[in-house]
Design a binder for these strands. Structure first.
Lengths: 220, 220
DNA sequence: TAATTTTTTTAGATTTACCTAAAAATAAAA
DNA sequence: TTTTATTTTTAGGTAAATCTAAAAAAATTA
């Protein structure tokens, strides 16, 4: 059984592994809000316990054991987010911080019953897939909005940034999960994107477009 | 804001305060499963922070501030227990350990919304009163079953032991909250008590009788 | 390839919550 | 009121997770 802190490291390493194969010390330090020296210490500990493979100066990768542990934490995090939104009427931009705490509650029975209580949801309020109790989940095929071309369209099915500030901004723009969008123009000057949502033309910054995930329903 | 550990100390001191006015170091050590020397350390820290009044060798009492903090933790613990039993179908003997973890989740909004979701319950699955958001709750007038005399009767409205072993035992005997009981005999030899529940005569040990709380509906 | 910059690690400290062993204070018994 | 027993505190230390500052390795640039 891992400590609260170890669990956070595993979770962060797991998320960073989706971007790069081996994960760098500095990247972890930035995510976990700590110093690289502290990360090195913890990585050694996780390596000793068999959660990560680690070669000095080369970065880390999760072992099978480490990945399973990480996926379990992600599962808990996402289930709690569904609970907060579906049952306690939290908004999607309010749930992340609370779920960061709830994900560390240890009871397995609690999570299985919570899953059942929520009706075995497949995705969380931000569109991220929820692993089942065996750690399996659909590899969702997302495209970043920024990577679409003029004329391309699709459905908003996820976000890659969970901060309250970002999500509130999306809400204000009417860009919530399930909304159909289509790219109508891309501005050369600042890379901002012109999109059509519910028959309205809006302009979003490149930065925002990077963190909106689209499932395309075929181009036109 | 207090640490996980500080919260546990406050909670334990609060519960022990219901028995004796000033709480002894050894009593805390026993409850918290630690050594008296460690308790002394923590007490000093809590005193520095203004949560307890402390005189060397004399024991501690909670300050107003300490009591408020403790009651808030008790409120959270009991609300989570209701959630686990009412919504996730846990049995009353399964909830204590999980609630020991959940009680430390910090979001105030979470607790207010959970309270509302549960319909503002007044008592937890063991019959203990749930403080409202201002820390107010009904001082319940319990009598220990062991203190009743032959012929006395009443309703089981609480227990003063939350261990799974004890609660399972009560369940097996049919002694659950709300059951009407009447004392029919007390054995001199071992102090065990003969009681009438649902037209059946059963015998319970002195130890068990000590931890069952009765609200009397008048003697006969 | 050499020089510079960036990344990562080591070394040595700090803080929190705990420990053991011994000393001091208080309470109980003779 | 001594003596004995119990309770509590002090002193000094440990482990976990962090830190700063400096050294070492790797990557980048000139």
């Amino acid at each position: 059984m891992q400590s609260f802190t170890e669990e956070n490291y595993l979770k962060i390493i797991y998320h960073l592994s989706e971007l790069t194969n081996t994960v760098q010390t500095n990247a972890i330090a930035e995510q976990i809000q700590t110093k690289p020296a502290s990360v090195t210490d913890m990585i050694k500990k996780l390596a000793d316990k068999g959660f990560v493979d680690y070669i000095k100066y080369q970065g880390v990768t999760l072992t099978e054991r480490g990945r399973n542990a990480a996926i379990n934490i992600v599962r808990k995090h996402r289930l709690w987010e569904v609970f907060l939104v579906d049952k306690l009427n939290f908004r999607w931009d309010e749930v992340h911080e609370v779920a960061e705490e709830l994900e560390h509650i240890k009871s397995e029975a609690l999570i299985e019953r919570l899953d059942e209580f929520l009706g075995f949801p497949k995705s969380d309020p931000h569109g991220d897939p929820i692993p089942d109790k065996n750690g399996r989940f659909a590899k969702t095929q997302f495209i970043k909005l920024i990577d679409l071309k003029i004329g391309d369209g699709g459905t908003i099915t996820g976000v890659s940034q969970h901060s309250s500030a970002f999500l509130k901004h999306l809400e204000k723009l009417g860009l919530t999960l399930g909304k159909q969008i289509q790219i109508t123009d891309v501005t050369d000057f600042d890379g901002s994107v012109e999109i059509l949502v519910e028959n309205k033309q809006i302009n979003i910054s490149r930065e925002v477009a990077k963190h909106i995930l689209i499932s395309t329903n075929g181009k036109n």
